[in-house]
Design a binder for these strands. Structure first.
Lengths: 217, 217, 217, 217
DNA sequence: CATGAATGAGAATTCATTCAT
DNA sequence: AATGAATGAATTCTCATTCAT
């Protein structure tokens, strides 16, 4: 078995990571069963330890892979157009990524909330790039007068990610009933930008105004 | 003898619940140790099983108690004044409750995100009263023209609770740095009602309009 | 099962210790199997952990029990008569103790030689009482002129214990052929006191001087 | 090609044995890790199994090599002079050998004491040459009247080796404090030849009598 | 020969739960 | 009701050994 190496090994690793992602998604970090991962992936118990030092490291790797994919997607989102459009595009990219590995991201969110010394820093580290991209967009929005200026963009970026997360949670928690995955980007951005308050009299209360128009108050 | 026994029994139960709350808070649902709970409460391991059928039931009971307290607080919040004021008051009550048993509520949030067949329904059931109260307030807001009408109040209520949750998570995750507990109610309501978007030109864009004024569009 | 306690528990503990002694004797510290100990003793795997925190602690307890017995025997040896007689008596007590739990003491010797940070101190601590008793006897011998004075009694005591150990090892290693257990005390003392050298011409160079005689120089 | 391969093979073997010696010395037979040996030696795990059938066989080979070296040293010790001088020389050679591979010999001693069916015979076999040389010297001593005749030289030879071993053990166990390596040969021989007893009045009780002198009883 | 991935039998330990007293 | 000893399933991780390449 020795000399095929490299490609094969990478494949096995990938398969283990995928299986692990599913296992973590289904059972959480603690509940995941290392043996089950190996066997499900079609290998023997011990094999997993040829690839990952421990369950926690495996989890971290799974997380890293997921986040890398997400960042890639995020980065390919066009940063032009109005802030609203950008945010919707980012949220849509987010939804697309998460849709692919829904259960896995449930675990990410869940573990993020555990605030455990072992996992929290890992997760935060992996999430940083997202927030940075969002913040960038918001900063542009501030310059354009589309974003309120009485709060630091860093806080607002976190808030946006948080709103997205909340909607996912409600999506998951409702068994997908509401909000549906398709609704999430629009609703998140609307909620984030406009809030739930009734708009004071204005011609087109919600929805898309062209960027140019917006610029001139 | 009967009555004394009855009272004693209630007391033991209460003590067990309190100790269990702390244990769950410190170690999570899975990590909690039944033996430790019993011993810390001053009883033997077996005693717990005279009061609760299983660890999960114990958790559910603990949760129920916590939620009852919260509902009580919520209910005592005056429902008069502007919707904004009501929401701030509710959020403040929330903060107050959570502050008392912060660690425990972290666990609740975490477990809520697990979406486990065993725990999720339990938690949702316990949270329902909150959401109902929020929805009630929002419904009044709709009637008063303070709340947007293009979304069902049920959804908005969930969104509000979600925004609150997000801010808690960020509060916990940042080690209390931002937002601080004091900031949470105001910030949550502002974000919820107004969003992050720059307000289109309007006389008093944010804050505090009297209900009467708002009624006339 | 609860209230019988005390006596029963002590009995169970004793049974576990005995079984463990045999297991350690048969397989050494590393080779010993905790499960096997429990099952052999007639209990389930987990039971052992109700009595001992870990395998190592179990080992230490077994050792302690063995050493206590030995010290008891030692202490009951009469400290009167010539040093030679005392040493023979001590060695004979030693043989008697070790005979009872031969295999276990083999393990003690073996583990002592591992010089492992976890085990060595434990063993040394348990062996100290023996050496102290031997040293006491030798100190008396020095006073009586029976023991050479150019070496500290502490060193000589260790040497005596060592010689005994060597003879055991040879006894065990030879499958009991030589020296036999009966021979060990005499041979050890002879070797220890006189060495292997031919005695320089002297009336009755070795053996058996009456204490009274010796006292008068 | 054949010859080169042959030499190479011998070299690889040697390297593996050396690395293994260190590993066994550091971790004992059970604790030694085959993988670590291979990798440290610069080979892959499987390679070891091209040279040795099993970990145990590897251990036996390592042991054999160590003993061969020792025997070589022993054999080069001059067998002339008084028995005492010879023994001191042998013991010194022993110390020198052991000093080089201290940890390894600790393992030999330790495993010798395990009396395991798999290892004990191997070790005894390897030690035989030493004992034979010692016995030879003692036999000469008997002829010269330097050694007591009431014990078979075989037993005395074993006793001598044993005394040496004991002193090593005490040396190791004391962290080198006492006896120091330099002291061991003299002390071992003194203890072995004279014992701990006070010498009955005699001109030069211990130390260094010229061989000629001794010959005349 | 060398390689090193795969294997899978163990091993120690934890802990919720049961139940006799 | 309280107890706490007994249970045994479950889990993570180790590592000697095999064998296809």
């Amino acid at each position: 078995m020795a000399r095929i190496t490299k490609e094969t090994k990478a494949e096995v690793r990938k398969r283990l990571l995928e299986t692990a992602a599913r296992e973590f998604a289904d059972h959480g970090l603690d509940g995941a069963n290392v043996d089950r991962i190996a066997v499900t992936a079609g290998y023997a118990k011990g094999t997993i330890y040829n690839y990952f030092k421990s369950k926690l490291e495996l989890f971290a790797e799974v997380l890293a892979v997921g986040c890398d994919q997400a960042v890639e997607r995020y980065s390919s989102v066009p940063h032009t157009g109005s802030v609203r459009d950008c945010l919707v595009a980012l949220a849509a990219a987010d939804v697309a990524v998460i849709q692919e590995e829904e259960r896995f991201f449930q675990v990410v969110v869940r573990e993020a909330m555990s605030f455990r010394a072992e996992t929290y820093p890992v997760i935060v580290e992996q999430l940083t790039p997202y927030v940075a991209i969002v913040e960038e967009v918001l900063a542009r929005g501030v310059a354009d007068g589309e974003i309120r200026t009485d709060r630091p963009t860093g806080q607002l970026a976190l808030a946006f990610v948080g709103v997205l997360a909340v909607l996912y949670v409600q999506h998951w928690g409702s068994g997908g009933a509401w909000p549906t995955q398709e609704e999430i980007p629009e609703f998140a951005v609307t909620l984030f930008l406009e809030g739930a308050g009734a708009r004071p009299a204005s011609p087109k209360p919600r929805r898309r105004r062209t960027p140019t128009k917006e610029k001139s108050p």
